[in-house]
Design a protein around this nucleic acid. Structure first.
Lengths: 205, 205
DNA sequence: AAAAAAATCATGGAAAAAGGGGAGACGGCA
DNA sequence: TGCCGTCTCCCCTTTTTCCATGATTTTTTT
């Protein structure tokens, strides 16, 4: 029986590229695609593919969250993460959230097919470069933020002071200060400027 | 005569996607692709396509530089910029450097074909969303920074204090403070956090 | 139900940035 | 030559952030 593959990516060209790469491959069938998390979930209510190729950057939700959600609801569906070069710091999170594999967008056809075949059987696949960067990444680890920390971080990046943030979130300024301190620590940033830069470059904002 | 199209993108899947989108279109012929600036320039020494679809992110050189270089050496070759969502601040630069058009990576087939057709005739094409963001960008004008301001901005974003920056640049802390104040004013930012965010999102860093 | 993680609040002090003003030196350019 | 922009430097005050420490309550996970 052929492996059913579903594609989630917000770039039409990437979807088309993957379809084209998988078109004439026997044992692999593209059952559809979605360009955001919502329509992906909608599709899954109707039918479940064997494997989902999922981009990390989606317009409505991060691929990491979507990955977790899908795995919880449909444990039989295996997920392969997709990303470009400079986003490899997300690989760990994606794998932590139940992804079975990770392929870079400049992967070859063979690599992609191999990944799908292995993952469909319940195995794990990391493209070489992904595995490489995973090692690097574990050295300079990327922090996991709580709900509140993300909120505070966003407001900080918008130029708000602790007092303004406190007012907005209906909490004390000292609490905001605590969150701020925790953010600085998690990012190993010694001040707000670096905090914002790191957060932006790591896709937290 | 068919329009010859050359693709420059570091992601294999995108190249494949574009090829697939243009495969059965008459009057358009894909003559090849390159995954970096060097091999693109090497190809152009052999033959010149009518239109180049060029990604902004290349491993060895920015698409903006490559665009300028190609246009200087081969004025008959028209260039269409390619990019994802959050990089639209580069559109202006790309167009300033001689690009004839700009298409987002989630463009439809029709949009892509239209863009190629128009640009091949010497016209200009901006995808709707690109044009939209261009207007936003011109409205919330992007400041022109002086050499020194750029230096200071970069160091601020790296988390350095005025004193540290002063030491690094061999100037007084009060001078650094002046530059900092000017930066805040130019960006209409009321503190460092917003300054860094704006600078990053507008491609100054 | 117990343990762990997250969110809340506080005090007090040191360091840095923000906001205001003023001013001299230099180079390019009209 | 005189103007303009840039870079340089300084003082003062207020605001905000950063740091250290400690504690209670709520939520989540195990």
């Amino acid at each position: 029986m052929a492996t059913n593959v579903f594609i989630v990516d917000d770039h039409y060209m990437v979807i088309e590229g993957i379809r084209s790469l998988l078109q004439n491959v026997k044992d692999i069938e593209c059952t559809g695609h979605a360009m955001n998390a919502v329509s992906c979930l909608a599709f899954l209510q109707q039918q479940q593919p064997d494997v989902i190729l999922m981009d990390i950057n989606l317009p409505d939700k991060s691929g990491i969250e979507l990955c977790k959600e899908v795995r919880e609801k449909y444990p039989a569906v295996f997920i392969i993460g997709l990303s470009t070069f400079n986003q490899q710091s997300f690989i760990q999170k994606m794998m932590d959230n139940g992804a079975s594999g990770y392929v870079l967008k400049n992967a070859t056809q063979e690599e992609l097919i191999a990944a799908i075949a292995i993952v469909a059987k319940g195995g794990h696949f990391l493209s070489e470069e992904a595995a490489l960067s995973l090692r690097k990444y574990n050295a300079g680890d990327m922090p996991l933020l709580t709900r509140r920390e993300k909120e505070v971080l966003t407001l900080i990046a918008e130029g708000m002071t602790n007092a303004e943030i406190a007012q907005k979130l209906f909490i004390s300024t000292t609490t905001v200060d605590t969150h701020r301190k925790n953010l600085l620590e998690k990012f190993h940033a010694k001040n707000t400027a670096l905090l914002v830069k790191l957060a932006l470059s790591q896709g937290h904002l």
